[in-house]
Structure formats: structure tokens, C-alpha cells
Design a protein around this nucleic acid. Structure first.
Length: 460
DNA sequence: TTTTGAGTTGTTCGA
DNA sequence: GTCGAACAACTCAAA
């Protein structure tokens, strides 16, 4: 008898309970990855490299990673029958697509007398484990986080199996999946920034723990400083387990740990609101007076809104497949509140351009910014991108890096080039409207316009 | 059941 | 220049 490990967003050998369970007795193990066709372009780039690393790591242990495309409900039962498999091991998932698939797969496999085991692997706690005293799921972050801390994040992690008794079976070639951009090759900035795969994930964690974690509470808000962990894509793809990160970070890293709890909270929201990516949690927001404008959306996507901190963020995203958290909030708030574009349009763009595009975190965060989330900010909380830029990018390092055409502007006007006088612009060699756009909307007009729109939703 | 306290990340205005 | 209040009302979670 053999068993089968179905890898999803748990692309690692260490602390991977599905893999450990399958390898326990030393019996033959088939290791399978089925392409997730819903992945966006940046995620596919990541996936290509992560799978390359995983296949290499597996081969070093004597196993082989089988790559397939198609319907898991067809592929897995067929493979199980062909290889005389009696147990399938995989990671528990929260996404509605996976929940549906798992339900159906369980039924199909049962008919073949094959057991489907789903292991806790991608989150700190099992879905729906953290509940209120009344047994309901949380909708507010702070009490949710307190309940997580009270429950205690379980420790103990399984080491990578010493040896994998791999089973050979037909596999596709990763290159045939065409997940790397060729014409044009836009991944140069991503190659420079990231090392997808389990080793890269651990490397990133160790760098973070060796220094930045100590100043995380304040430095994480300064996008010009490498103060964040940059673990998000690694954790998303499961190259490193969130429990491992939690325990390695230690009790002193409370602020950092809280970010892991935010991830957990988003998963909890997705469990409750399966249409999180598209449907507002607060139903009254379906009637929000958005003003869809393809040109405005495109300018935002390209980093040509005329607001430096927003454009810097959008260009960082485009170049590296990631954006600093503080800037995400500013750029998202600008799209939704100043430009009045539907948050779903922003969510879709992030889905395609973020390496770590995650159904739970992306959906929950966009809803939070838009004000329609379960735990939303007050409607009047509208980020002023000039103030935010001056506060968090005071020395302009971030804007100058990603918006180089403004690099020669003095700090005083860097975050609002439209306020610079002619002589300053000239000496900085900036021609507004030519080298860099005028703002799409006047900030002073954008705020009241946003507030008025929000008043409507409130029935005012 | 009712009550009470609280809710990631902000901005503006006026004293 | 600094500081506190106002900006709404509602829902959630727990006592």
C-alpha cells in the first residue's frame, strides 16, 4: 500500500504534518502538486520557483514531485487507483474553492476505500477553532486576538522526513506551465528581491530575527527602511509554517506576532464570508456610489496618479510583486476614497500583481480599507497621502527610489510636487504634466467627496 | 436579557 | 506649534 501527499499552499518539507504522516511508516509515497489555475501572474512566477525548489528538496530525500494540471477530483482518484494508494494527506484549507473540492473529493475517495486526511498546516489554529463564549466566530480583531493568546498557539513541529520512499508516476514538466514571463520579461525586479522556496523562507526569517525584529514596532511603518519581515509570500505558499514563525519570533515580538494573528483573523473572516473577495461584509455597501473610471484605475495601476507616495507604492508592487504595508493602506485608501473606484477593482489588481496574493488577507484588507469590512475603520478616516508621506517617508528615500523622476525635489515638496514653485521644479528638472503627472484629483476636493459618498451609504 | 465598554493603522479645526 | 475634541453611529463581545 502507498499513500499520496497532495501539496497545496504547504510547499515545504519541515513542519509539514501531511508529509510527515505519509512518510511515517517508510511506505511508498506519491507526492503531487496540481496547478492552481486561479493564481495571478505574480503568484505564478513565485509558484514556478517555489515548485522548482520543492522538487529539488524532495529529490534530495529520494522522492519525486509529480506535477499535474486539471481537476483534482479526477486526477487524485485516478492516481490513487493506479498506485494502490489507501490514504491521501493534504493541508486543511479555508478558501471556498478548496472547501468545495475537499468535500467532493472525500466522497469520491470513500467509494474507493481511500481515506482523505486533512492536516492543520497553513494556520495557527484550525478553522472555526477560535470562537466567542457564545460559540460564534469573531468579527472584531482585538477580542479574536485575545482569544488566540488565551488558547495558546500550539508548539511542536515535525522535522522533515529523513528519507522519502518516492513513487514514480507520469508528471508534466514545470516549463510547460509557462508561468515565467517571457515577452516581455517583467520579473527582473522580483528575481532581485526574492528567493522563493523553503530555504529562502528560512533565510528571510533568520535575517529578520537577527536584527529588524527588535525595532519592528516603529521601523515597520517606514517604507524606506527594511523594517518588515517580508515573509508574507513565503508564508502564503507555506514554504515556512506560521506556527514555526510564531515560536521562533518569541514572546518579545508581540507586535510582529500580532501580524500573524491578523492573517489568522482574515482566514477566520473568509471562513464566515466565503464571498469575501467580491461581496462586502456590510451589505449596505453594495449600494455605495462608486464612480468606476477605467482611466483613473489604469493611472493608479501604473503609478501615475500624480501623488508621489501612492505612485511609489504602485511601482514597487509592479516591480517587485510586493508593497510595504503602510503604503498599501495609503494607496488603497486613495483608490477607494479619493478616486471612488470600487474596492474590488483594487483587490483584483493586487490579486494579479502580488506574489503573495491571498484570498483571505487580500479580501479582508481591501474591505477594511473600504470601510465595508466586519471590523472597519470609521468612515471619516481618510488617509491624506501627503501627510502620510511626510510622516512615514520624511527623508523621501522611498519615493525617490521608486519615482526617480522626482528624486531631485527637496523634501519640503517631494510629497506634493504641485505645491512647488516654478524655480524649484525647474532646478529639480521636473516638468509637471510632462515628466510627472498632475494629481488626478485635488486632495482637498477628494476628501469631502469621499465623505459625502460614505454619508449616503449610512442613509444620511 | 440587558448593559456596558470598546473598536489597527486618521485628519482637521480651533483653542 | 501643540493639543484635545470632533468627526457617527453601530455592532460586537463579555459581564
Amino acid at each position: 500500500m502507498a499513500s499520496l501527499v497532495w501539496f497545496r499552499n504547504d510547499l515545504r518539507l519541515n513542519d509539514n504534518p501531511a508529509l510527515s504522516a505519509a512518510c511515517e511508516g517508510g511506505e511508498p509515497v506519491a507526492l503531487l502538486y496540481i496547478l492552481d489555475e486561479r493564481a495571478g501572474a505574480a503568484s505564478r512566477w513565485w509558484l514556478h520557483h517555489s515548485l522548482t525548489a520543492l522538487a529539488r528538496d524532495i529529490a534530495a530525500k529520494g522522492g519525486v514531485l509529480l506535477l499535474r494540471r486539471g481537476d483534482p477530483l479526477v486526477i487524485i482518484p485516478e492516481l490513487a487507483a493506479a498506485l494502490d494508494v489507501n490514504a491521501v494527506h493534504t493541508a486543511r484549507a479555508y478558501e471556498p474553492y478548496w472547501r468545495e473540492t475537499d468535500r467532493a473529493l472525500d466522497a469520491v475517495l470513500k467509494k474507493q476505500d481511500v481515506a482523505l486526511h486533512r492536516h492543520l498546516s497553513t494556520s495557527l489554529f484550525p478553522p472555526a477553532r477560535i470562537t466567542t463564549q457564545a460559540g460564534k466566530l469573531y468579527g472584531v480583531f482585538t477580542p479574536f486576538a485575545k482569544a488566540c493568546l488565551a488558547a495558546g498557539v500550539p508548539g511542536g513541529s515535525a522535522p522533515a522526513p529523513a528519507r522519502i520512499n518516492g513513487v514514480q508516476a507520469p508528471s508534466e514538466a514545470l516549463e510547460d506551465w509557462d508561468m515565467l514571463p517571457a515577452r516581455p520579461d517583467w520579473a527582473g525586479g522580483m528575481r532581485a528581491e526574492w528567493t522563493p522556496g523553503e530555504a529562502g523562507a528560512h533565510g528571510r526569517l533568520e535575517v529578520f530575527l537577527a536584527g529588524p525584529v527588535q525595532k519592528y514596532t516603529t521601523a515597520r511603518d517606514i517604507p524606506g527602511v527594511g523594517g518588515t519581515s517580508k515573509l508574507s509570500p513565503h508564508v502564503h505558499f507555506g514554504e515556512i509554517s506560521p506556527r514555526y514563525v510564531w515560536h521562533r519570533a518569541g514572546a518579545g515580538a508581540e507586535t510582529f506576532r500580532k501580524e500573524l494573528l491578523w492573517r489568522e483573523f482574515s482566514l477566520n473572516l473568509l471562513w464566515q464570508h466565503q464571498q469575501l473577495r467580491t461581496t462586502p461584509i456590510r451589505p449596505e455597501f453594495t449600494a455605495f456610489p462608486w464612480a468606476p473610471d477605467a482611466a483613473a484605475l489604469r493611472a493608479w495601476q501604473r503609478g501615475l496618479t500624480g501623488v508621489p507616495i501612492v505612485d511609489a507604492g504602485m511601482r514597487e508592487l509592479w516591480a517587485t510583486g510586493w508593497m510595504h504595508n503602510r503604503v498599501r493602506m495609503i494607496a488603497a485608501s486613495y483608490l477607494v476614497k479619493h478616486l471612488l473606484q470600487p474596492w474590488q477593482a483594487g483587490e483584483a489588481w493586487f490579486w494579479d500583481t502580488l506574489c503573495e496574493a491571498d484570498e483571505a488577507a487580500n479580501g479582508a484588507s481591501w474591505q477594511w480599507v473600504a470601510g465595508c469590512g466586519a471590523d472597519a475603520a470609521p468612515y471619516f478616516r481618510v488617509f491624506n497621502p501627503v501627510l502620510q508621506g511626510q510622516k512615514f517617508d520624511a527623508d523621501g528615500a522611498y519615493v525617490r527610489k521608486f519615482v526617480p523622476e522626482l528624486a531631485r525635489l527637496p523634501d519640503a515638496v517631494l510629497h506634493q510636487p504641485w505645491a512647488a514653485d516654478a524655480a524649484t521644479l525647474e532646478s529639480a528638472r521636473v516638468r509637471l504634466g510632462t515628466d510627472y503627472p498632475y494629481p488626478l484629483v485635488e486632495l482637498t476636493a477628494g476628501r469631502p467627496r469621499a465623505l459625502a459618498a460614505y454619508t449616503k451609504v449610512r442613509g444620511g
